[in-house]
Design a binder for these strands. Structure first.
Length: 478
DNA sequence: CCTGGAGTTGTCCTA
DNA sequence: TTAGGACAACTCCAG
């Protein structure tokens, strides 16, 4: 018998239950379908996501070819494509790993119905989460809206999780169906080719993901707790884009890390990293149970928030020209590499929503287009969290001071000097607030404010007060 | 149904 | 210089 394996955000061979089960059953035809446009299609991929996807599909295709298999590329409506491929290959069953975003999950339901209607057998699996959103609930059966108890419940549920190995062989069908050419999909930017920084920073694909994990487990994971907030250091695993596309799965990471440090004194330190995997699960859980999260405030009282509509300010933020070095460094890192350190994401997001009073959806949209790890659940849940309208939200008075954040988490300026090189000549004491540097200091550093680097676009103290006033004005607050 | 502790990531002012 | 408390009130969640 022959099985179609529909790859989506599970672009790996190891720890891929849909693929493993298909290989045990007989011949396998791996398929990836580019879903764009049409009724019920998931949100169109951002530019950085498209770049990553091109690399990831090429890598997966190579891995399959090395095992005598092929990756069949198609675009269009999945039910139609899969139906046609099943007929062409005489496949009798279709496997996939579940996705959890509302549009994707709804579409999968429709596809399943269409395919079973044609007499095909459909089997779905979990490759993307430690626990699926409907498997975790509070004592009263409701979805969690606070992280801590969610994390406790998740941990209790998944003790002893294991990941499947890669299938020993991928049995080929009698005949391979036609495939699109990856290049013809136009996923890579041309005119201009803005992806140079992405190419320098990342290697998409399963092998690269495994290499990153191995290197991280060899040492950095033990310092993660202490150094993860320092954007100038390589203290994080940088696995997020690989996780997004499923080049590596959370069960593989969980099993590798717990297996390595179980019973040792380092288990707790490793746990600080694994806790972050739970945030990814929590976001997915929230989006599943609150499917309107992408376009509606979880806390409805924020619907009355007096956001400003300032296209110029938004553009300054996007380009890293706010005049606050830590904010600008983050925005430029994002633009150059498609990624931003987590601590800095909070700072820039707080700056947009609190200092500039710009609606979080503008920030979310920009991140969606520029992040190589752009993930609907993580993106919307975290933007809402920062803005204060989400689950377990930051207290309204928690407004980041971009100068203090810079001084605290980039004390020696490694991060700011790297991404805001026009300020590199300033001493540590003035680096995070160049407008307070005496003229002589600026001159010695070769900086003219307003020419080489902008003055701060808003005054922190005033902007903070304005945000507090706007938040106070919401119904339900004193 | 009621109760009470708790809630990722801060800042600022005062003593 | 540093430590402690204020900053709203609310909702969540376990017992």
């Amino acid at each position: 018998m022959t099985t179609l394996v529909w790859f989506r955000q599970d672009l790996r061979l190891a720890g891929n239950p849909a693929l493993a089960a298909a290989c045990r059953a007989g011949a396998v035809v791996p398929v990836f379908i580019l879903e764009e446009g049409g009724e019920g299609a998931p949100r169109r991929l951002g530019g950085a996501l498209r770049w990553w996807l091109a690399g990831s599909l090429a890598a997966l295709s190579n891995e399959l070819a090395a095992r005598g298999a092929r990756l069949i590329l198609r675009r269009g409506d999945p039910a139609a494509v899969l139906g046609e491929l099943a007929a062409a290959t005489k496949a009798t069953s279709v496997h996939w790993n579940r996705r959890y975003d509302p549009a994707g999950a709804a579409r999968d339901g429709d596809v399943e119905q269409a395919l079973t209607g044609r007499g095909l057998e459909v089997e779905t699996f979990n490759a993307g989460l430690l626990a699926e959103p409907w498997e975790i609930s509070t004592g009263s059966g409701r979805p969690y809206q606070v992280f801590k108890p969610f994390w406790v419940a998740l941990r209790n549920r998944i003790a002893g999780v294991v990941a499947e190995a890669a299938p020993p062989a991928i049995p080929a069908p009698e005949r391979w169906p036609e495939s699109d050419a990856l290049d013809a999909w136009g996923l890579l930017p041309t005119r201009p080719d803005w992806a140079g920084g992405l190419r320098a920073a990342w290697v998409p694909g399963e092998a690269a993901a495994q290499a990153l994990l191995a290197a991280f487990l060899d040492g950095p994971i033990l310092d993660y707790q202490d150094r993860r907030d320092l954007p100038g250091e390589a203290a994080t695993a940088r696995l997020s884009p690989h996780l997004h596309w499923g080049e590596i799965g959370p069960r593989q990471i969980w099993a590798a890390a717990t297996g390595r440090f179980a019973g040792s004194g380092d288990a707790e330190r490793a746990g600080a990293f694994l806790r972050q995997l739970a945030w990814r699960e929590f976001c997915c859980h929230l989006l599943h149970h609150f499917p309107r999260l992408p376009d509606a405030n979880l806390q409805a009282k924020f619907d009355a928030m007096a956001w400003t509509d300032d296209a110029e300010a938004l553009a300054a933020w996007q380009r890293g020209q706010t005049g606050y070095p830590i904010v600008d460094a983050g925005m430029r890192e994002l633009w150059a590499t498609g990624w931003m350190h987590n601590r800095v994401r909070m700072v820039v997001a707080s700056f947009l929503t609190k200092h500039l009073l710009i609606h979080w959806r503008h920030g979310e949209a920009w991140f969606w287009d520029t992040l190589v790890d752009a993930d609907l659940a993580n993106n919307v849940a975290n933007w809402q969290w920062v803005a204060g309208c989400g689950a377990d939200a930051a207290p309204f008075f928690r407004i980041f001071n971009p100068v203090l954040q810079g001084q605290k988490f980039d004390p020696h300026g490694a991060y700011v000097r790297r991404w805001v090189p026009e300020l590199a000549g300033l001493d540590d004491g003035h680096l995070h607030e160049p407008w307070r540097a005496p003229p002589m200091v600026l001159r010695a550093a070769g900086v003219t404010l307003g020419r080489d680097y902008p003055p701060p676009m808003v005054d922190h103290k005033r902007a903070r007060q304005r945000a507090l006033d706007a938040l106070h004005a919401l119904p339900g607050t004193a």
